[in-house]
């Protein structure tokens, strides 16, 4: 171990060296303490509580064991909740697919630009996210509605109006708009890090532009794509404000139902069941994707 650190070349190992520089090696684990405590209190404990609540009759009051909340969810004779789950899944998949279709070419173009230009442009991509997400969604409402800006403009130039507000496409649009940067940035980060020498080597060996892209760039960018997909899919499947505001409460998603159980109905047990189910579903989806690339996917750079 010690030798490896001494020989270290990569970023991680250099960091390890720095850490060693700060104090003794016994001091190093101490640095992890604040985060471990944080994790225990704010991540592990709530998770345990949610799972516990999901099998209780009426938490936090009546804590006796029951599976009735699960039965209520998986009621195949009257599959209201399963329908909602399916709708959430379906809208999240469509939104993620559109994000990928728009995001990949955008990230690619961005990564080919001169460093100064692309730095400015990537800031422009994050810029809207400095504003609160709720405000941005409200803004879409006033753009899309019948008397909104877009339709007023269309009427003014003599075109028929479009009625997208309060349809499921409005929900998809809200998702794509809000989560697109989460798709572009991880892909972009991976693309800019591709060693130009690799591309040049392929060209030297006679690959044309298309082959360079399909055989070199695309496979090398897969980690970014996977990271982008998970960072878009997860918020899209759990969102609740977007569907409420842009969908007019008619395209109820699982996030809406969970919020309602906690805030309105006060049925924490059933709310916890849905939270557990959605977590398991996300976990399954993430596991279905190739796992090799997760560490250097470059996500979370926002």
């Amino acid at each position: 171990m010690k030798n490896r650190i001494r020989r270290g070349k990569t970023g991680k190992e250099e960091y390890a060296l720095q850490v060693e520089g700060i104090g003794s090696r016994r001091f190093a684990p101490m640095l992890a303490l604040p985060f471990s405590v944080y994790m225990l209190i704010f991540i592990a404990a709530p998770l345990v509580l949610i799972v516990l609540y999901s099998v209780c009759v009426d938490p936090p009051g009546d804590m006796s064991f029951t599976l009735s909340h699960f039965k209520r969810f998986f009621d195949f004779e009257n599959p209201v909740y399963l329908q909602v789950l399916w709708r959430s899944f379906y809208i999240a998949v469509i939104s993620t697919a559109i994000c990928l279709l728009i995001g990949y070419p955008m990230a690619y173009i961005l990564s080919r630009m001169r460093p100064t230009v692309r730095n400015i442009l990537s800031v422009l991509f994050i810029l809207p996210m400095w504003m609160n997400f709720l405000l941005r969604t409200y803004a879409w409402m006033s753009l899309l509605e019948n008397t909104g800006l877009i339709n007023t403009f269309l009427t003014a130039i003599g075109l028929p109006t479009m009625n997208i507000m309060y349809t499921q496409w409005a929900v998809v649009l809200g998702n794509v708009y809000n989560f697109l940067p989460f798709m572009i940035l991880p892909i972009y980060n991976v693309l800019v890090k591709i060693d130009p020498a690799v591309v040049e080597a392929a060209q030297d060996l006679g690959a044309n532009g298309r082959r360079v892209f399909t055989k070199i760039i695309l496979p090398l960018s897969v980690p970014g794509v996977i990271s982008g997909i998970s960072m878009t899919f997860m918020p899209a499947i759990t969102t609740f404000v977007i569907s409420k505001l842009l969908g007019g409460g008619q395209y109820t998603l699982i996030g809406d139902l969970i919020e309602k159980q906690y805030k309105v109905t006060g049925d924490w047990g059933f709310g916890s069941v849905m939270s557990v189910i959605i977590m398991v579903l996300i976990l399954l989806c993430m596991n279905l994707m190739p796992s090799s690339s997760r560490d250097h996917a470059g996500g979370g750079l926002l």
Partner: peptide, 12 residues
């Protein structure tokens, strides 16, 4: 709870 469940059926 019954009202709530039925209302959820309506909007969902």
């Amino acid at each position: 709870q019954i009202y709530d469940q039925l209302w959820t059926e309506v909007i969902a």
